[in-house]
Design a protein around this nucleic acid. Structure first.
Lengths: 396, 396
DNA sequence: GCCTTTAATTCGACAAATGAATTTAAAACG
DNA sequence: CGTTTTAAATTCATTTGTCGAATTAAAGGC
């Protein structure tokens, strides 16, 4: 049995791996129960995986104080150091990067300005190579010891081919970024659209860790979305990110960055909020977009009516967009994921009520909406999760 | 290997079955190539399936005139009579039903008025039992010879349990329809929400036959949608139909049947069009909704400006909704499926242009939008496809 | 110390996919 | 017209891998 669509043993390994990943640790017996595999098979496969250094036995046998008779169960867990990867997120102003192990422990990180002058692929490769060296140093790792590096790029990216149809960061269209980077970097490279990274970050290390189906939405410079169906990131036909932010909520509405009108993004992204603010509060202090936005939020919470009205409207329209998403997908869980404090505002009870008012009601429970506030390295961690995903997929 | 998540042989059978279903007919060699199974395995499995009467060899070996050397390939195909099922679609005014074989050949059909006075489950069971007898007669089949019957019910239905949380057709909420029907009908019963039926109809017998991912949208009394991902109908967390029709396209817009405002359905469903017409064209002739709508369409094509404006607006808003769907899903294909002539109007070049104007553009091709006009038995055929799906799933 | 209990492992049986070799059925060739 | 060539299908021995049953391991109870 060398080549077939049906590789039985690999199926078992993947099954056990993902159960362990989701549960943290499990005894062989529990693995058998949860996977439906026989104890005999579990013994065989786990022995194999231990020999590969992928998993290890846990020393303290009973985590809870429970006293049991009989032979004590030996809990197994993933061996974090068996797969250490780097994640790099490219944005207009900065590159953020991170080294992470299989458990999601951050071994090191590095954020660097990135003069956005659109790059050639070759230049980018050189920049990233240098970055990777320095990043590895912060984590006291050798670059060659990394299992791979995941790179999140804004724009239209085909993951399978690592082909960038278009990105705001690159001079040219239709660049086979994967090829160039693979040539210049000493470890396996994976390239994907950045919107998928948040979904992966949640799937590997966040609220989605124990779930197989959920939707992640981020609001930052734009509005991003990631869809996880059946434990897999759904990438659509063209492999481009799900463009939830360019969903139209008002026909012929406000002008969006994309040139179209009425996009959700044109009402709730940071530039959209500041656009409104520029009319009524023309002299908001602050050098950067973030700073001015923080200020806007501050005076809103301090009671400024104009500022409040801006957030109120954004919240209302966002709730509409979210309700549409729910009406279409009927997900169990929606994760609002990001680092910005505005999410705080959006998670108010009124906001959730507004969402509920716009979804079709059934007896069944309304999908849960949670806010997950990450540090500023969320995207980089997502890129790392992406690398883990690809590496483990290959090596299991 | 009795109980395990990994049933290897079944996988092979399913793989071969679905390849044959999609291709119509294939020689063993091609099956081997397409599935990645070895020729030896294909021989084994197909022999088994032939013994089961599931497939058969095709007499005319080379369908195309192509002359080949070597031992001639023997094409295989599904044996249509190996699985014959009934499909029943329940609506407010009528029950439509159909008997169909594995190839989608219609063996008989029956449409019957259905006095919508909300039913008890028991009464419904009796009604359906009688219907099934008569239906079988039209197809010259014995009811007992049918492999099963699929039933499409409007409302909120959990397919796995056959549990109807709510339906406009039933007096009570929370009815375990599957249990009652199974007790009263002599063959296996399957119950699902009706929106999923169109997706299944397209997947088994329509434009989706050769595809694994697409979206189907219907416009009739309401707006329905079915999502197929990876060859499976996506049912969401609650198992309720995707409520595309209640997606909001205008904040605080027109009042919808569902009590909310601004739903797509409130602008494009038949009642929505007639609502508009009632203002400017109060005396549209016609006894039924369909007739008045046909008339409206007729005078629109004849040049009546008011009527045209009604359809134009519906078209524009529908295009917006469709664009949103595309932005979220990025499907390869969208099928507009139904029996009504308004679809004709909606498939105009201007309509498609309008959709394109509202989706995010990339170099990649825009998803294809096709219109599939079915006869009035589309839903019943979908219900039959549903039964086939379940039966084959069980018996492979 | 012996019994009981539960987890893990071992081992033989069986299921099923595969590659290599073989058979089959046709066209091409001389 | 028999032989060769070609391609499809099949056969068969081999190998991979799962499973049930029996066995071993490691603890608590008494």
């Amino acid at each position: 049995m060398k080549s077939s669509l049906i590789e039985q043993r690999k199926q078992g390994r993947v099954l056990i791996f993902s159960k362990l990943r989701k549960s943290g640790q499990l005894a062989r017996i529990d693995i058998a129960k949860e996977t439906g595999l026989s104890p005999a098979t579990v013994t065989t496969i786990t022995a194999e995986m231990m020999a590969d250094g992928l998993i290890e036995e846990v020393d303290r046998p009973t985590p809870n104080g429970e006293v049991r008779r009989g032979r004590p169960r030996v809990e197994l867990k993933l061996r974090p150091s068996s797969c250490v990867v780097a994640g790099i997120k490219l944005s207009e102003g900065v590159i953020s990067s991170m080294i992470v192990d299989l458990e999601g422990n951050t071994l090191g990180s590095l954020v660097r300005p990135f003069d956005a002058a659109s790059f050639e692929a070759e230049e980018l490769a050189v920049t990233l190579n240098a970055l990777l060296q320095d990043l590895a140093e912060t984590a006291e790792q050798k670059v060659e010891d990394l299992a791979g590096v995941g790179i999140g790029v804004p724009g239209i990216v085909n993951k399978e081919e690592g082909f960038v149809h278009w990105s705001p960061l690159l001079k040219k269209r239709n660049v086979s970024l994967l090829t160039t980077l693979t040539d210049h970097l000493p470890i396996p490279v994976f390239v994907d659209n950045d919107t998928n990274l948040v979904a992966l970050a949640e799937l590997w290390f966040g609220y989605g860790r124990t779930l197989d189906d959920f939707i992640v939405v981020t609001i930052e410079h734009g509005v991003g979305m990631g869809i996880v169906i059946d434990g897999q990131v759904y990438r659509g036909a063209q492999g481009r990110g799900a463009e939830f932010g360019h969903t139209k909520i008002i026909p012929d509405g406000a002008l969006c960055r994309c040139g179209q009108r009425g996009c959700l993004e044109a009402y709730i992204a940071d530039y959209a909020l500041l656009r409104e603010a520029s009319i009524v509060l023309p002299d908001l202090p602050g050098a950067s977009v973030e700073q001015r936005l923080d200020k806007l939020y501050e005076i809103a919470t301090d009671g400024n009516h104009d500022a409040q009205s801006i957030f109120a409207r954004a919240g209302k329209l966002f709730s509409l967009g979210l309700a549409n998403l729910i009406n279409i997908f009927d997900p169990k869980l929606i994760i609002l994921s990001g680092e910005q404090m505005r999410l705080d505002y959006l998670s108010s009870p009124e906001f959730k009520e507004e969402v509920q008012r716009n979804i079709i009601h059934v007896d069944a429970p309304v999908p849960e909406i949670v806010v997950h506030r990450w540090g500023d390295l969320m995207w980089a961690k997502g890129a790392a999760a992406f690398a883990l995903n690809e590496c483990m997929n290959a090596s299991l």
